[in-house]
Design a protein around this nucleic acid. Structure first.
Lengths: 188, 188
DNA sequence: GACAACATGTAAGGCGTTACATGATTCG
DNA sequence: CGAATCATGTAACGCCTTACATGTTGTC
């Protein structure tokens, strides 16, 4: 029962602004998705359950020039569920890093084969860092004077930025080790 | 088919040293578990499948003063499966941080309620950093002259260390924001 | 006699991914 | 006419966690 942060991530997003399943899916590709990902299939499934539990209400909205949509909003019950969860402890997340498994596995094959893969990861993390920094410059031009809500959003984004910076530095270390190993093999 | 790093983490661990399901579970609480976690239930289930696929062999070993155990070791086929996987790309992992969901959610309740929770996380990450640093001092007293295999193990550990340092610094930022918000409420 | 460590599993239920499926509207 | 975007779902399958279940041996 401790891993189900998806419900609560959806509650937070719908409290910030009610929306359709489709809109939620797009938010999980951007802002919220920076620290909790979800696909539209997951979202539709969980929305249905949350509606059954009385946490959210659905209102059908006809649109011009677009298909109708179901706009979801949080009920007082849903809000209470979020507040209860905020008071419960969550487990500190452990790392789940497939690349680290590969690096350890490289000892049993040719480590140089991994260089391309690590460079690919480096490029992906570099792109994500750029995205975060662009978002920070756009949404928080003056980070010293933020209201409470904005300060909380900003500090989460700051975590993403520092995570990507740290990861880039680590991948550079990994690449240095792999290049050193390759050079050593060439000598002998 | 891209998320199944558990099989390969087990192959790596069994290549380093054959062992029982129970022993593997303990390794996943320590060294390998620093970057890929698994419970004994998962491990027994996957071991059975891997045995069916011919990736590992099982040998029953009677012990003195302890229950018998099944020692698993990697077959040539299993080793080939690992080598094939090392050549396939894996997706860069996205963050899955429940605490970040809570921080965003704190805007809709009393942010000061979160201070205790964040401090608990800070203590857990601080303890893990100490553990990593102790392991580094013990296993890598002279990190400049390592053979290839040890260099790869060390650089993965270095990643864990930097991740924990980064996380501690971020949690201090989060605490600063939460304290500032609480002080602001006290004034008004 | 109780407890910890060693050792191996099953079952239930929710999470997550991939593939499949449908249909409207807008823009080029 | 085709592609992209908006919009909502179902189905299948495997992953992961939690709880349950059993039994041995050694130590206090």
């Amino acid at each position: 029962m401790l891993g189900m942060a998806l419900e609560y991530a959806i509650l937070v997003s719908l409290l910030e602004k009610p929306g359709s399943g489709y809109e939620l899916a797009r938010r999980f590709d951007r802002s919220i998705g920076y620290f909790w990902t979800a696909t539209h299939q997951q979202i539709y499934r969980v929305l249905k359950r949350m509606e059954g539990d009385g946490w959210i209400e659905v209102r059908e909205v006809a649109q011009e020039g677009r298909p109708d949509k179901k706009v979801h909003s949080v009920t007082p019950q849903g809000r209470r569920a979020l507040e209860d969860w905020l008071r419960e402890p969550v487990e500190p997340a452990s790392l789940r890093h497939g690349l680290a498994v590969k690096i350890r596995g490289a000892a049993f094959s040719d480590p140089a084969d991994l260089i391309g893969e690590v460079e690919r990861h480096r490029a992906a993390h570099s792109a994500r860092l750029e995205e975060y920094l662009t978002g920070e410059a756009r949404d928080f031009p003056d980070p010293v004077s933020l209201d409470d809500g904005a300060a909380l959003v900003h500090v989460v984004l700051r975590g993403g930025i520092e995570y990507e910076r740290m990861t880039l530095a680590w991948l550079d270390e990994v690449l240095a080790v792999l290049h050193r190993i390759r050079a050593g093999h060439a000598e002998s």
